[in-house]
C-alpha cells in the first residue's frame, strides 16, 4: 500500500462511523419520545380513571406508582 492508507482509513472510517452513529442516535431519540408518550398516557389515564371528568387538571395528587417518572 502506498501513502493512500491514512486517507482511505479516514474516508471509509468516517463514512461508517457517521452512518452507524446516526442510526444509533435515531433509535435513542425514538426511544426518548416514546417514553414521553407513555408517561403522558399514564398520567392522563390516571387522572381520568378515578374521578371521571378531571382530565386536563394537571398531574394527579394521588400517590404515584412511579414517582420518579411523573414529569
Amino acid at each position: 500500500m502506498d501513502g493512500s492508507l491514512p486517507y482511505l482509513a479516514a474516508g471509509f472510517g468516517l463514512t461508517w462511523i457517521v452512518m452507524v452513529l446516526y442510526a444509533w442516535r435515531l433509535e435513542a431519540r425514538i426511544g426518548r419520545v416514546r417514553d414521553g408518550l407513555r408517561r403522558h398516557d399514564e398520567s392522563t389515564s390516571r387522572v381520568e380513571a378515578p374521578g371521571g371528568r378531571t382530565a386536563g387538571a394537571g398531574p394527579p395528587d394521588e400517590p404515584d406508582h412511579r414517582p420518579e417518572e411523573a414529569r
Binding site: M19, R29, I30, R34, L37, H40, T44, A55, G56
Partner: peptide, 27 residues
C-alpha cells in the same frame, strides 16, 4: 438501502414527535 432504512426510522421519530406534540397540546 441505508437511506431507505434511515428514512423509515426517521419517519418513526417524526410520527412519535407529532403524537407527543398533539397530546401535550390537548392537555
Amino acid at each position: 438501502l441505508v437511506y431507505l432504512y434511515l428514512m423509515l426510522r426517521r419517519y418513526r421519530l417524526a410520527e412519535a414527535e407529532r403524537q407527543l406534540e398533539e397530546e401535550t397540546a390537548i392537555g
